[in-house]
Design a binder for these strands. Sequence first.
DNA 1: TATTTATAAAACCATTTGGTTTCATGTCAA
DNA 2: TTGACATGAAACCAAATGGTTTTATAAATA
Lengths: 105, 105
Amino acid sequence: MQDIQPTFRAIADPTRRAIIGMLADKEMTVGDVASHFDMTRPAVAKHLGILREGGLVTVRAEGRERVHTLDPHALRPVEQWIEHFSHFWDTKLSALKTAIEKDES
Amino acid sequence: MQDIQPTFRAIADPTRRAIIGMLADKEMTVGDVASHFDMTRPAVAKHLGILREGGLVTVRAEGRERVHTLDPHALRPVEQWIEHFSHFWDTKLSALKTAIEKDES
DNA sequence: TATTTATAAAACCATTTGGTTTCATGTCAA
DNA sequence: TTGACATGAAACCAAATGGTTTTATAAATA
């Protein structure tokens, strides 16, 4: 298994989450993405680089442009990490409930 | 609605995710948590503070100790954010599949 | 071919982050 | 009541982060 830290890091920034939202709609070049922000292109390119490190985005060269595509599959390990605690919690709550009911009997 | 940024921030750090894992087991004081890390107590206290800001942990004073409890409910908005893209993606994929099938007919 | 365009890459900067040490405060226990 | 203990709070520091500007390079276009 690969490290999920780069993915957690990638989604921790609001700008990058916004970029993810845009790429869900359609593939975009660096310039496309940058046009939606009050920020220079190199800054956006860095964000895209961090998204790529997190496995959330793939890039393909198309002439002088670089087309960025979202890959939401990378979110799966994060989702599972969350599910683990949700499930754990529910189990504990129901166990507690059972214990209380027994106590009342 | 409240801001989810503090929650994303809270879970972005590996030490804090480890703390979440510990607190899933049982409630703990600052000292309890700190004993599991090669790190000073003030450092751990800071992490717990950030987890509290993210709504993931609640604190109750018990004598001179501060007992920290996990509240996994705070992870729900993050889970939903992820679900949104997973769902979006699945929809798009099935639409693409349909289009291809039509094309082949 | 000369020029513009899209991007990468590097150097740089201010702020945030994750840690430390030091000191203050309230509670437990001898 | 006198320490010892658990914690909070503040000052401080190095490294990471999110941004900038500048420079270089390859591809499209006049």
